[in-house]
Each structure stands twice: as structure tokens, then as C-alpha cells.
């Protein structure tokens, strides 16, 4: 870690209240230049509020933040020239064409699409066939690419993308992240939020966020590796019966449905997962449930689910 002055973004005890709810609750983090940094969390976790605090749209109730060394409260006009922002809501003009939307956002920053072609070329190439089409007539994936293009068209020093892939099909999501990877290779700092945990692996580092608090910040691999308990994958026919039974298991920390299988976390830290797997199989067999149990590596989602449930338990214990 270097000094705060080198960070692309930092926040210290950043807090935003709406009436009685703490949307962002004393958040501390820093984003390094050139990093692709993800905020991962469910809807209502406070991601959009946090982004709006950083892009000068909200003023914090407590704490402070710097983006590119500038204070979003005091230096808003200088900062607005340097950041690219893609709001969570679709925010293009539906009655204007792709080309018109793009050239409008370019003109607002005193530039032109042609002059910025080097920056936007990889995205624009995909949009070009639809240049004359109205934004309202684009597919969801294309709309997001246009919005990204509009956020990039003034060659910003940092990009804030609030849930850019929400409501977009799986193929378009992958294409979108491929574009972000290319932009990151070009040296652009990107801060992105998403409710999709499978997207976390595309980030350099992720911050897991819930109820306005950051639960953990680390690389995706480190988040997974830090999973503290043995994790077992359970496959069987009667998933519902399995779920009910396993939740009664004396050593169950958590049981979650995960795709086609169930993920079982055993409370006995440090125990041999193979041993636990055969134990669990026999325990279920004794209850007339035939399953296949294998030790598995935790994913980001597992880590997040565990952290969330632990935080919730802590909140119940000490509100």
C-alpha cells in the first residue's frame, strides 16, 4: 500500500443516510490506479448510493472521499470533467439515434466522436451497424454498450459503472466484461458494481457489500481461499428433502441450493473434507436419502453467503 495521494479513489468512514436508514455506513476502501474494482452485493446493499457519492451526485453525511485526488463535494466541477459515469438506470435519449446520443455526450464535454475514436473504437465497432437506429429500438445488451460508449466518449480518467449488466442476457454480459477487460488493459481505472457474483472473478479486487457496509475487500481468489470452513457439494434427486434434512445436521453451518447441487458448510474447521463427505453421505443414507457428496472449492458466492449470514447473526446479537 502506498499513500492516499496515489489512490485513484479512497473513502474514509463515508456515510449517507436517507431518513432513518443508513444507505452507506462508514465505508472505508481504496482503489488503485489502473485497477478493475468491483462492488458486489445484492439489490439494496447501497451500491448505487455509494457510486453517487463518488460521482458528485450526493454529498456524504459523514466521512470523506477523494476521486483522482479531488473532493467530490468541493471540487465537483473539476471532477465532472474527468470521470465517466454510467448510472444504474438506462439513461440515454430513446428518441435519438445511436449516433446522436453519442455525439451529444461528446459535445457536452467539448469533444467529438471522431476525435475520441481511439478510446471508443472497440465498442463503437459493435455499435456502428446500428448508428442510425433509435436508442429505444436497441436490445438490452446493445443499450448497455451504447451507454458505456457514451460514458467513455470524453476519454475519462476513471470509469464508474453502476450495475452495467443488470437485466442483460448471459452472452451480452460476457461480451460486456470482455470490453471492460480491454479498457483495463489500456490503463483505465474502472469501478464497477454488480449483483451477479459470478462476475466478481473478472475483477482485480472486489468489495463485498451488504446493508451499506463493506464485509470484505480482496482479490477474488483470496476471498475464496479465505473460506474458513470445509465445503461439500451434495447431489441427489430429492433436493427439497435433502435441504430440510441437512439443515438438521448437528454440524451444519449453512446449506444453500447452488445450481443443480446443494452446498453444505461444515462447522468443524480444519477437519478432512473427504472424511466429512463420507460421514455426511452415511448420515443422509441413514435417513433414506441417497446422495453423492464431494469436497469442493468455495466460489465467491459461497464466501459471500457465509459472510452475509455471519453479519446478520452479528447484527441480531448486537443491533
Amino acid at each position: 500500500m502506498t499513500g492516499l495521494a496515489d489512490a485513484a479513489v479512497w473513502a474514509s468512514a463515508l456515510t449517507k443516510r436517507f431518513a432513518s436508514t443508513l444507505a452507506v455506513d462508514h465505508v472505508d476502501f481504496r482503489v488503485e490506479p489502473g485497477e478493475l474494482f468491483g462492488f458486489i452485493g445484492p439489490d439494496g446493499a447501497g451500491k448505487s448510493t455509494l457510486f453517487r457519492l463518488l460521482v458528485t451526485l450526493y454529498t456524504p453525511d459523514e466521512g470523506e472521499a477523494r476521486v483522482l485526488g479531488l473532493d467530490p463535494v468541493k471540487d465537483l466541477w473539476r471532477l465532472r470533467r474527468k470521470i465517466g459515469y454510467m448510472p444504474g438506470r438506462f439513461s440515454l435519449y430513446p428518441d435519438l439515434s445511436v449516433a446522436e446520443n453519442l455525439s451529444f455526450y461528446a459535445s457536452v464535454f467539448g469533444t467529438t466522436v471522431e476525435r475520441q475514436m481511439a478510446t471508443i473504437e472497440p465498442i463503437y465497432r459493435q455499435l456502428a451497424p446500428f448508428a442510425g437506429r433509435r436508442a429505444s429500438a436497441l436490445s438490452g445488451g446493445m443499450k448497455q454498450k451504447l451507454a458505456l460508449c457514451c460514458a467513455l466518449v470524453h476519454d475519462p480518467e476513471i470509469l464508474f459503472l453502476d450495475e452495467p449488466t443488470t437485466g442483460v442476457d448471459a452472452v451480452s454480459r460476457r461480451e460486456f466484461w470482455d470490453l471492460l477487460a480491454r479498457l483495463r488493459e489500456g490503463g483505465l481505472t474502472i469501478v464497477v458494481s454488480t449483483p451477479y457474483m459470478d462476475e466478481a472473478s473478472r475483477c482485480d479486487r472486489v468489495a463485498l457489500i451488504q446493508h451499506g457496509r463493506i464485509l470484505r475487500i480482496d482479490t477474488p481468489d483470496a476471498v475464496c481461499a479465505a473460506y474458513p470452513l470445509p465445503l461439500l457439494g451434495v447431489r441427489g434427486v430429492d433436493r427439497l428433502g435433502m435441504l430440510d434434512a441437512m439443515r438438521m445436521h448437528p454440524h451444519a453451518e449453512s446449506v444453500w441450493p447452488f445450481g443443480a447441487s446443494l452446498h453444505f458448510t461444515d462447522r468443524r474447521a480444519g477437519a478432512d473434507p473427504r472424511q466429512l463427505a463420507s460421514e455426511l453421505r452415511e448420515w443422509l443414507a441413514a435417513r433414506n436419502i441417497e446422495v453423492e457428496v464431494t469436497p469442493i472449492d468455495p466460489t465467491i458466492e459461497d464466501a459471500f453467503m457465509l459472510l452475509m449470514s455471519q453479519q446478520e447473526r452479528a447484527e441480531v446479537a448486537a443491533p
Binding site: 466541477w77 465532472r80 457536452v108 467539448g110
Partner: peptide
């Protein structure tokens, strides 16, 4: 209503 005000606000306009 369209949400474009958010983009106008973060612009230098």
C-alpha cells in the same frame, strides 16, 4: 423521469 438528468448532472454543463 428518464434518468438522463443524472447524466446531465455529472457532465460539465
Amino acid at each position: 423521469e428518464m434518468g438522463t438528468m443524472e447524466m446531465l448532472l455529472v457532465s460539465p454543463l
